[in-house]
């Protein structure tokens, strides 16, 4: 399940459960919808995601790539648990992601 909340300059996407090849398309669709509306400052709240596969990583990095083409655009991560960090670390992709302890800190980073 994916929900989004719009703030003044930033949009927060909150997903829950597993992000794998079955569920990643729903997350991609949510990001694509925001990018079509020219919203390029994005936070993903991962507090309720307990599993992140390569398909989820792919969606995050492709979205981040598209955001960063815009001035001040970015996708940052909030509230990632140990499992999420483990996936990013094992993939060797941790250095691409900006991670914040909670949504407030992530939103405040823009």
């Amino acid at each position: 399940m994916v929900e989004s909340t719009q703030f003044d300059k930033v949009d927060v996407i909150k997903a829950s459960g597993r992000i794998d090849s079955h569920t990643a398309p729903e997350l991609k669709e949510a990001f694509d919808g925001l990018l079509e509306k020219k919203r390029y400052s994005l936070v993903i709240d991962m507090s309720e995601i307990d599993f992140l596969s390569s398909s989820g990583v792919w969606v995050l990095l492709e979205t981040q790539k598209r955001c960063r083409r815009r001035k001040r655009g970015d996708l940052v991560i909030a509230s990632a648990n140990d499992n999420i960090q483990k996936t990013l670390d094992l993939a060797g992709l941790m250095h691409f992601m900006k991670m914040y302890e909670d949504v407030d800190a992530a939103v405040g980073s823009f």
Binding site: S54, V57, G92
Partner: peptide
């Protein structure tokens, strides 16, 4: 696979095998 290129040039094929 190593992902040491800039984000814009990143090719994520092979990430599953690396994991």
């Amino acid at each position: 696979k190593t992902f040491d290129k800039p984000l814009e040039k990143l090719d994520l094929r092979g990430i599953g095998l690396r994991l």
